[in-house]
């Protein structure tokens, strides 16, 4: 019983990280109607950038974000305005194939630059510390990443629902041509959104890199978890993505208890079964 509770809490905290992976994908699908196959590879790129900055300045992973977050923001803006804007709004095929190519390029670039070896981000003893809560041991790092994830979700949710930025995002998602008529430059706005997405990715990447060793080829798996969180939660629903991520995290940890190699399999299985029952996701899009 205690083990089940510990697995559940562990799954919730793992899921909060998956949800954070998924947040960016949710925004690009929701606002730009575009899937980014290279999303997972960009997470891995973020982790490598942190690693480089840490070595260069001899600082910890969280401090490295001071540099990596703005850097990723700029990379996102350039990526969108130079490349992705050429295929956005053209249906499924073109953006999907373009970002698929980008994913291959990124993976091999990382491999060429950093070798195929795995590495991880060293955060000192915070990664090892934990505390006991009624017999259930809780790691400090998973708890921290859960708190960070919830804060970022709350902030994004507030931005979308209560700010000028969010009103622009929803207007562009509804009807880009009319959004231009009320002064929203959709192309520039997409660049801003992708910059924001990559900044969020940078923060997710640090939490991921401290928790799990990563390699140049780790990206596709991150993309699948992100995608499952988004689709399970229902498109265009920010908190739905959070719950979707949590469901996948819990399913994976319980699956791993059944057979150690089958954790991700059960995550995928729960995703497929849930989708068969509700193809539009667990939560329909809520029109404000």
């Amino acid at each position: 019983m205690l083990i089940a509770l510990e697995t559940l809490i562990g799954g919730l905290m793992l899921g909060a990280l998956y949800a954070l992976f998924g947040l960016g994908l949710s925004l690009s699908l929701g606002v730009m109607r575009m899937i980014n196959i290279a999303h997972g590879d960009l997470i891995v790129l973020g982790a490598y950038l942190c690693s480089v900055v840490m070595q260069m300045f001899g600082i910890g992973p969280f401090l490295s974000l001071m540099l990596v977050v703005p850097l990723m923001f700029v990379i996102g803006m350039l990526l969108q305005s130079l490349l992705l804007n050429r295929v956005v709004g053209q249906g499924t095929l073109s953006p999907l194939l373009l970002t698929f190519g980008l994913s291959i390029v990124l993976q091999n670039f990382l491999q060429e630059t950093f070798s195929a070896d795995t590495r991880s981000l060293q955060a000192g003893d915070i990664a090892l510390r934990g505390f006991d809560l009624g017999g259930v041991s809780i790691g400090l790092l998973p708890l921290l990443s859960t708190v960070v994830s919830v804060i970022i979700f709350a902030g994004t949710s507030w931005l979308i629902n209560g700010s000028h930025l969010g009103r622009q995002a929803r207007a562009v998602a509804d009807d880009p041509a009319t959004a231009r008529l009320v002064g929203v430059d959709d192309r520039n706005f997409y660049a801003l959104i992708t910059g924001f997405i990559l900044a969020v990715i940078a923060m997710a990447a640090v939490l991921y890199g401290i928790r799990t060793p990563f390699a140049p080829t780790s990206g596709p798996e991150r993309l699948l978890y992100s995608f499952e969180a988004v689709v399970l939660g229902g498109l265009g629903n920010i908190w739905g993505t959070f719950i979707g991520g949590v469901v996948i995290g819990v399913a994976q940890l319980f699956g791993a208890k059944i057979s150690s190699g089958l954790g991700p399999f059960f995550g995928h299985l729960v995703f497929l079964v849930a989708l068969l029952a509700r193809p539009e996701g667990l939560f329909r899009r809520i029109q404000r």
Partner: peptide, 16 residues
Amino acid sequence: AWYLIGLGMLAIATMV
């Protein structure tokens, strides 16, 4: 790896 990077870029260029 450079060959694969080139191939990926070629595919991207073709799409664009």
